[in-house]
Design a protein around this nucleic acid. Structure first.
Lengths: 130, 130
DNA sequence: CGGGATCCCAAAAGATACTG
DNA sequence: CAGTATCTTTTGGGATCCCG
């Protein structure tokens, strides 16, 4: 992922206009990006709000992921020059076009999160219905 | 990613039933997984077929990604015991439920692959319509 | 043909400390 | 509050050789 930053210059020629699925995953496929976009879908968020929502993420990773999303034009970063500082993140119109995908991923996740786990905990075939 | 293999035992308690988006990304978010699933959507594939379709992937990565998809119950691995060996990969019914997501990602990718690139090449705001 | 095993390097990510 | 900088650890992933 993240390997198109320079603008495809590094690809020989094979996958210049690579698989569109790959392109999409490159935008939302980062470990936290989907979640960040997801939470931005119901409104503007601040830096420490994200840290509260995603307890697992470190501030460094949060910064990096937000920066990449910003570079990709998915989110907007609004800085208020005041003390204490205030920065608000929001989806750009472009970022909002990702909404349907994120929503579908949420629905699928809700649907199969439990079923998949039960399936995984059964190493062999079972007659317990999934 | 991939950190739920043991069945959530490693999570303290916070995100046991984590964000469903995160769950979904965990299944399809690997570097090549989306593409592999995508190509399996139009039929069974063999190992070296994938290597031809995705020239960038090494056999090691291909093996690993296929194994993970298999462990997640997304794909089925059919081994024909013969010489030369033959192994066919296909989507399980479970894996096919991912179809709509992959399709949406493909459509989005096709739609924005070009536009996004033009946007990225413009460091400042422009009146060239995206 | 379809991998497995091993080695090794590079990139990703965590921890900690510091700052405008 | 919202980060940066630096360091260390972990992981990803390429190269190579081998096997059934």
């Amino acid at each position: 992922m993240r390997n198109r930053k320079g603008g495809f210059g590094d690809f020989p020629d094979s996958n210049k206009e690579a698989c569109p699925v790959e392109f999409t995953l490159d935008v939302i496929g980062g470990k936290w990006k989907g979640i960040l976009i997801y939470h931005l879908m119901d409104g503007t968020k601040r830096f420490n709000e994200f840290r509260r929502i995603c307890p697992g993420i470190t501030q460094r990773m949060l910064t990096l992921q937000l920066r990449e999303l910003e570079e990709d034009g998915v989110i907007h970063r609004e800085v208020y020059h005041q003390v204490p500082p205030k920065v608000e993140y929001s989806l750009t119109p472009f970022g909002q076009t990702l909404g349907p995908i994120i929503n579908l991923m949420r629905i699928w996740g809700e649907e199969y999160q439990t079923k998949q786990l039960s399936a995984e905990s059964c190493p062999v075939e079972t007659d317990i219905q999934l």
